[in-house]
Structures are given as C-alpha cells and as structure tokens.
Design a binder for these strands. Structure first.
Length: 666
RNA sequence: GCCGGCUUAGCUCAGAUGGUAGAGCACCUGAUUUGUAAUCAGGGGGUCGCGGGUUCGAUUCCUGCAGCCGGCACCA
C-alpha cells in the first residue's frame, strides 16, 4: 500500500499527500489564512474534525465561516460542550447527559444536585467565557465501549454510562477532550467539533432560560435540568437575534389581546376564552368569511350536540384511546343535599365532544346514501372541549374549549385525489386572503398506537402521497416531507404549516384519510352495483381552531389587522368642540356604510388623540376640525401616518367601504 | 402531569432586617378649544393570588393550594 493518497479539492485540483495527513495540515499547506479560517472539513462529503487524519483517496473541502449554516451548527454544538464543562466546574456533582444544537442555539440537559434557576446563569456564562478564553483544543479519541462505561461510572456519570452501554454495536464511540491534559474535561460525543474552544466568540452567546426535561424525552424517566442558550458566530448576529426575540415578544397575542381589549382569560374558566366585543367582531368577520368560502366550495353546514353518551364514544373508539382528555359528566341530577355526595357514581356517563366527526357520521347515516350523493362535504363550526394537561395551556393558542372550522368529506376511493386537490386550492385561497405568503406541507405517517390494518394504512398513506403529487405540491418549495409516527390514531394526515410575518411556522390546516371511523360507526352508501360500500372519510380543517388561528393572526399582523378584520376600523377625532356635531354625522354615515367606527370628542389635543389611536392600532383616523366641518370634508389619516388626504365625506366613505370589503367579495 | 420562576391599584412596575404600601399611565373633577404620536392642576382608587402556621403584629418568614410564565411531556 502506497504511503501517498490523492486529495481532490473543490476547485478540481488534486494533490498527493502522505496517508494520515489531516485537513488542518492541508489547509496550512495551502496558506496561513486558510489554516486560520478553517473550522472543519468535508471528506468525501462527510463533515469531520480538522485534526482527523485522512486515510485514503478522498475529496476534501475545508469549511469556514463562509459556510455559515455548517459553521453555526458546529459553533452551537461547541457552545453546548462549553456550557457542560462550565456547569460541572461550578456545580460539582452535576451529571452531564445530552446537549445538542438547536435552531437558534443550544441546550444541555444535566442531572443536577439541585435544579438550576435563572439566577445561576450569569456565573455559568462567565465560566463559559473563561473556557473559551483558555482556547482549549477539542481532541477526538476513539474509545472502546468498556473504557467509556468504566470511565463514566468512575466519575459518577450514570446517565452517560447508560447511554454508552446502549449505543449500537457498529457505532464507533468517540469522546472529545477539551484540552491536552490527561484529566481534561471530556464528553462522549459523535462530533465533529471546532478545532478549539477559542474559535467561539465569547460575546456571541447568551444563556436564555432553564427548564425541566425528561431523560430521553420520556415522562417515565428522571426529570433533568436543562439550560438553554442562543449562540452565534459573532456579536452582531447575536444582537440581531435578541432584537428578533424582542420583536416576537411585542407581537405576543396575550399582550396585544389585552391592550386591544380583544379577550381575557381567568382562572375560573381555565383554558376557555372570554371574547370581548372587539375580539368577537374579529371572530365574526373570520367566521362569516369562512362560511362564504365553504358555501361556495360545496360544503353543507351542520350543528351537532355538545354532549353525547359515553357509549357513543366507546363505539367511535375515542373512549378507549382518548378518554383521559375528555370532559365526562354523569347523566343525573346533582344531589342538592350538601352533606351528601353530589353524584351517585352509578349513573350513565355523558361526554362533551372532543371532536365533531362521530356526530357527522351519525348525520351521514340518517337515511340511505347513494353513490350519486357523494362526495358529501359536511361542515361545522364545531365547539369542542378537550381536557388538556394544565401545563399545556397557553394563552388562546392552546385551550380547553375551542371552535374548529371542521368538515368531513364522505367520498369514494376514486374521488379521494380530486377532493384533496379541491381542498388544497381552497386552503391556498384562504391563507392568501388572510395575508399569509406561504405554507409547507407534511405527511404524518402511522403512529405506534393506532386502529386499523396495515393494508389500510399502506393505502391511506399512499393516497395522500399521490394526492399531493397530483397537486404538484410535493416540492421543496412547499417544504414537502414525511413525518414517521406523527399521524392520528385513526388516519395519516397531511399537515399544512403556515409561515408568519417573522418567519415562524404554525401547523394549522390538515386533511386526513380515515377508513376506520366509517367502519366502526357503520357508515355506508349504495354503489352502482346495488351493494353497500364504506365511504372514505376525509377529516379536514383550514384554520384549525378559531381561538388559535386568531392568536396567530394577532401575532402575524402584530395587531395591525387589514381593514376588513380590524375591530375598530376608524375613529373620528375632533380638533375643536365646534366640530362635535359634524363628527357625529360623519360617524353615523360611516356606520351606515357598514364600517366599525368610534368617535373621540374628548377635550384633548389632536396630538394626544393621534398618539392614542395609533397605539391602539386603529387603521384610520378621521380628523375633523372647523375647516372640515364647514367644507363637508374629512382628513383621512392612515395608521402610521402615511399619505394623509382631505376628501369630501362621500368619497371617504366610498374609499373606506371599498377597502373594507372582505377579500373573497372583491 | 413534571421541573423552575412569578402573583402588590384597571395596566406597567417600585417597596419595607416583619410595624397593614408608592410611582407613571388609565379613571374622575376643573381649567384650557387646541391641526396630526402625551396640555396643566386637583381627586378617588389596594383583603399586597387564596388557605394554614410562626409572631404582640405577616403583604413581607414558613407551609399547602390555585393561576400564570418559561420549558419538558402531551396535542386524537
């Protein structure tokens, strides 16, 4: 075997080097600038440490900060290691477990002597800077499993020892040592890493929060203490990210919901929303819009019971799989004797509906359905209750009572692809109308706990796959991917993830192919052949729930809603009290034209009124003073102070009324 | 449900080694009639989340509970 190997560089050139040469050495031979800038290497496409010898002919590309995504990933992973080293120094006895990079930084899970609090973070950050300042080399070593386990056991690292013991046999186990000393801090890690901690910018990270996290993500395991950080390549990036976080915080729907008087929550109705007049106006505009869209799309709207007997939920399968998340009440009159138990404990049980689908099947089952009736698109703004765990509740985004824009399409197997296509077009139009630019599509495949045969799942998954292909949306532009194990217990589902104004994604829409429920609830239609057949049932929603979707709308628009959705569309503000009567006339005329208008006749300066209504995010301020009153005009001031115009009242009304028309009616 | 934190006026927040609380905005009253992001003056407003304990005395310390916040788990 020759002692020389051939490396092919990205520019197509090749060079012969000694077998075992490291990428770092190659970089140095090319030039000192590259040697300094190199962070890692791609050897035959595989990302590796700079110090890892190359053992055979290969293509070699050196990774620098110009390869930002990779550099960030490496840096974040290193930050996690630095965090772990710092924590173990400051908090002896803390065990290390696991610490990956994330979308904006990193975290590390520890088994601590006592759980960390945010007060611990500043000292840990300082220690991390010390680790970075020491510029410790990160040295990769391959260790046999026994040595790893022995090492971790000897150091009281039970979690790491467990992890090492369970690594697959064919995996080469490696440790990274932070420094050259025999007793330098080390962690078991697959790597790769930057050449040394000094490559990290000590001012480009920040520890952000602490939380609990289960070992290996399993509720049955120990609760660990997780420290999160955000990490970047330089301070500028970090600062930009921190500004982003502030921006997101300003958009928080809970903050805006309170400021704009849209809704409130209180402990007596935990997880249920009190919609105030201004919030409910928005709800009604959205609901009316959706109703028109569904009517036009061939849906028929229904309304079904809130409470149904437990035996109905047993039959649908919800009772068995989902009971712990249902609100259940006994079917009896509560005992009015305070000394006795309120319920006998022997009555039949009723449950608040957590979903609308069984009731829709029950409507379908009334009378005989023919293949000529299909597809049947049955819609309901269905109010559902789900007994969510306390820790899951979040503002109006995750609640216990919510209303879905739900519908079920009963169709034949042959109609399925066309129905999915029609649905995608409808969803597309709705998201555009509501001001969103893009969305991604994912296919969630069969979960571990599920109903139905393997054949059924094979067929259902493939149908959805085919249907998306038929719409041409199975492309990277739509973020198309498949998610194993993420499906519902009765069906695989297509998920639609909206992208909002600041780049966050929200799973909202869904369509699911269900053959289980029609079977369980014995839904059938008479086919061309005169025989009974099972319909396919497509569960679908575009907004998901009104509560959550309105929350998303609030954050997407930062409360500055398009005119047709704005709770208060215009405020008529006077400059002098002499214009009060005219302001009243203006408001009345606008109201008559269907606009939501308020007047501000207060004895305040116009500056004050402008400021106040601007902060209240009112789309238009209609300013009237003596001049306007005399001339029959208004000064139309858009939110933000853009081009202001003085118009005759009739023109202003026409303009606002035109702009306030919902997008589907334009 | 689990880990950590928080809970003081309508809102945002100060505060006291334990002696029953304060600001700004908002609200009310008065003056001012004002031209595009805060006019001035005065006034009212609190069971300091709820329960128990320690104490002469608790909003403050301890403890239980609830809600909320950040995550974890969950999200049919």
């Amino acid at each position: 075997m020759s002692d020389l190997i051939t490396l092919t560089l990205p520019d197509g050139s090749s060079r012969e080097v000694a077998r075992g040469t490291t990428p770092a050495e190659v970089a140095a031979s090319i030039g000192p600038g590259l040697a300094k800038a190199a962070l890692a290497a791609r050897v035959d496409g595989e990302l590796r440490d700079l110090s890892r010898p190359i053992l055979g002919d290969a293509s070699l590309a050196l990774v620098t900060v110009k390869d930002e995504a990779v550099a960030l990933e490496l840096a974040r992973h290193d930050y996690a290691h630095v965090l772990a080293e710092a924590v173990q120094k400051l908090h002896p006895g803390t065990q290390i477990t696991f610490g990956p990079s994330t979308d904006d930084g990193f975290y590390y899970d520890f088994a601590p002597v006592r759980p960390f609090t945010e007060d611990d973070l500043p000292a840990i950050e300082a220690e991390m800077r010390a680790v970075i300042a020491r510029d410790q080399r990160l040295v990769r070593e391959e260790w046999p499993r026994d040595r790893l386990i022995a090492h971790f056991k000897a150091h009281g690292e039970a979690f790491k020892a467990e992890w090492a013991a369970e690594m697959p046999d064919d995996e080469v186990l490696t440790i990274y040592r932070a420094g050259d000393q025999e007793d330098s801090w080390l962690d078991m890690c697959r790597g790769p890493h930057l050449p040394s901690t000094g490559k990290l910018d000590p001012n480009a990270f920040k520890l952000t929060r602490v939380s609990g996290a289960y070992w290996r993500g399993d509720q049955a395991n120990a609760m660990l203490s997780r420290i999160y950080g955000t990490g970047w390549l330089n301070k500028k990036q970090l600062d930009a990210h921190l500004v982003q976080l502030e921006e997101a915080a300003k958009r928080d729907h809970r903050r805006i919901g309170q400021d704009m008087d849209l809704f409130h929550l209180q402990s007596e109705a935990q997880g249920s929303v009190f919609w105030h007049p201004k919030g409910y106006v928005l709800w009604r505009a959205l609901e009316a819009y959706m109703r028109r869209r569904l009517d036009a799309g061939g849906y028929r709207e229904v309304k079904t019971p809130q409470l149904m007997a437990a035996r109905q939920w047993e039959q649908s399968g919800h009772w068995g799989k989902y009971r712990e998340n249902m609100f259940v009440v006994p079917d009896e009159i509560p005992n009015t004797d305070d000394a006795a138990a309120i319920f006998s404990g022997t009555a039949d049980l009723l449950a608040l509906k957590p979903m609308n689908c069984p009731a829709h099947v029950l409507i379908f089952r009334q009378g005989i359905k023919s293949y000529r009736d299909l597809p049947i698109r049955m819609a309901e703004f269905g109010c559902c209750h789900r007994n969510e765990p306390h820790g899951a509740l979040h503002g109006i985004m995750r609640v216990r009572q919510f209303t879905q824009d739900d519908a079920h399409i009963f169709c034949t197997a042959e109609q399925l692809i066309e129905e999915v296509r029609i649905f995608c077009d409808l969803l597309d139009a709705v998201y555009k109308d509501l001001g969103f630019d893009g969305y991604a599509i994912k296919l969630a495949l069969r979960p571990d706990k599920r109903f139905g045969s393997e054949e059924m799942w094979d067929w259902s998954e493939q149908s959805l796959r085919d249907a998306v292909r038929a719409t041409g949306r199975d492309t990277p532009e739509f973020g198309w991917e498949e998610l194993p194990g993420e499906g519902a217990f009765y069906a695989p589902k297509l998920e639609f993830h909206l992208t909002d104004a600041i780049g966050r994604t929200w799973q909202v829409g869904t369509i699911q192919t269900d053959t289980v429920l029609p079977e369980r609830l014995d839904a059938s239609y008479v086919g061309e052949d005169g025989e009974r057949h099972r319909p396919i049932m497509l569960h679908r929603a575009i907004l998901g729930s009104f509560e959550r979707f309105i929350g998303i709308l609030i954050e997407h628009h930062a409360g500055k809603f398009p005119l047709w959705l704005a709770p208060v569309q215009a405020v008529v503000a006077t400059i002098v009290s002499d214009a009060d009567a005219y302001a009243g006339d203006v408001a009345a005329a606008l109201t008559k034209a269907g606009l939501r208008v308020e007047t501000d006749l207060r004895n305040e300066k116009i500056n004050y009124k402008v400021r106040e209504h601007s902060l209240a995010k009112v789309p238009y301020l209609i300013v009237v003073g003596r001049r306007e009153a005399e001339e029959g005009t208004v000064a139309l001031r858009p939110l933000g102070g853009g081009e202001q115009v003085v118009l005759p009242l009739a023109e202003a009304i026409a303009r606002l009324a035109g702009e306030a028309v919902p997008p589907d009616l334009r």
